[in-house]
């Protein structure tokens, strides 16, 4: 049985530079390579990685805002990659997106009402009065006043704008929402508000989410499964509990180690913090792309790229030397007890 949303062998390459009439282009970025995963109705998949990992591109490629170079995205058995833009239109109703920057994702010269009704208008859903009523109802569900309909987004804070963006995404009653770092520019308290709202909405409307973030804490709050991306490849994918309890890829472990102790439940670090920054995707390292920063790298890692393989049920990792399951190590001595206090 194939999953509801089925991503198979997705590949995205970008041509770099202008590539003008006379000049040749300066190379290609392999933004995504051989991405496989599935998503069921009502499920949330978390995509996590640093900037340059390709996580945003993956979200956009699923919605076909970016053209995949190879591979397929199937929704309910229909291969979206094979559709023309016209044939694609009805499927766009079912899949919506919330962008990272709420100050960039809505036209400041449109009223909030126009913004929320835009997808309905473009999809030709309902009459004007019905659309207006629906938009107002959505605003109220987001905890905003329906008088906001006639105001401009410039009058709202980042957190409120992001709720307007969610209202817009929900206007066509979609089944899948791609959430591209929807809370990364917000205060912790605003982030909590958005995360709770998303959690409630998922229950009410049987939504599936693809939640993209660099913050493992926020992803774990919403996602049942998490895929970790590094330089355009999935390096580890597992159910949330498994991934957090026993990360197998050193990169996943590093992402956890980098979190404040309070967030990572006071556990000791698995590994020393990786040095340097994520390499440029234009010239990815040979072999395992993480070997240049990996504290456990061996000569083999630089020569041979590890393929994704199963380590336990639903848990796959691409590493020659995955971390052994450690269980929960005790809180190390000398650590103040309040770190571990949940609260």
């Amino acid at each position: 049985m194939k999953p509801w949303l089925d991503v198979e062998g997705l590949d995205v390459r970008f041509t770099l530079g202008e590539g003008g009439l006379l000049r040749r282009s300066q190379g290609t970025i392999h933004a995504l390579s051989d991405i496989h995963f599935g998503l069921e109705r009502g499920e949330t998949m978390g995509l996590i990685g640093e900037s340059g990992s390709g996580k945003s591109t993956l979200g956009r490629a699923i919605l076909r805002l970016v053209r995949p170079t190879a591979g397929e995205v199937r929704l309910g058995g229909v291969n979206l990659s094979a559709l023309s833009e016209r044939e694609m239109r009805p499927y766009r109703q079912q899949m919506q997106m919330v962008f990272q920057d709420p100050f960039d994702s809505m036209n400041a010269r449109m009223t909030v009402g126009q913004i929320i009704m835009e997808p309905l208008r473009l999809q030709g859903i309902g009459r004007t009065g019905e659309r207006r009523e629906k938009a107002a109802a959505l605003l109220e569900r987001m905890g905003l006043d329906r008088r906001a309909m006639h105001r401009y987004p410039g009058q709202y804070s980042g957190g409120q704008r992001q709720r307007i963006a969610i209202a817009r995404a929900l206007s066509t009653a979609p089944r899948l929402l791609v959430l591209d770092e929807p809370t990364s520019g917000l205060d912790v308290s605003m982030q909590a508000r958005i995360l709770n709202l998303l959690r409630d909405l998922q229950g009410e409307m049987a939504l599936s989410y693809i939640f993209i973030s660099h913050d493992l804490g926020a992803v774990a709050y919403l996602a049942q499964r998490i895929a970790v991306l590094y330089l355009g490849r999935i390096v580890e994918i597992a159910p949330t509990g498994t991934l957090i309890g026993a990360p197998a890829h050193p990169y996943t472990a590093s992402l956890m180690d980098a979190l404040p102790l309070m967030v990572r439940r006071g556990e000791a670090a698995h590994l020393p913090l990786p040095v340097g920054e994520s390499p440029s995707p234009v010239h990815p390292p040979s072999g395992c792309a993480f070997h240049t920063r990996c504290p456990r790298a061996e000569p083999r890692c630089g020569m041979e790229r590890p393929s994704l393989r199963s380590v336990s049920a639903g848990h796959q990792v691409a590493c020659h030397f995955p971390l052994a399951r450690m269980g929960n190590p005790p809180t190390p001595a000398g650590l103040p007890p309040y770190y571990a206090a949940g609260g």
Binding site: R60, L63, L65, M88, R89, R92, Q93, M95, Q96, M97, F99, Q100, D101, D104, S105, M106, N107, E118, P119, L122, Q123, R168, T172
Partner: peptide, 13 residues
């Protein structure tokens, strides 16, 4: 290049 244009394309514009 703004996100709201990308958003409109996503809505089928």
């Amino acid at each position: 290049e703004r996100d709201y244009v990308l958003a409109a394309r996503q809505f089928g514009a």
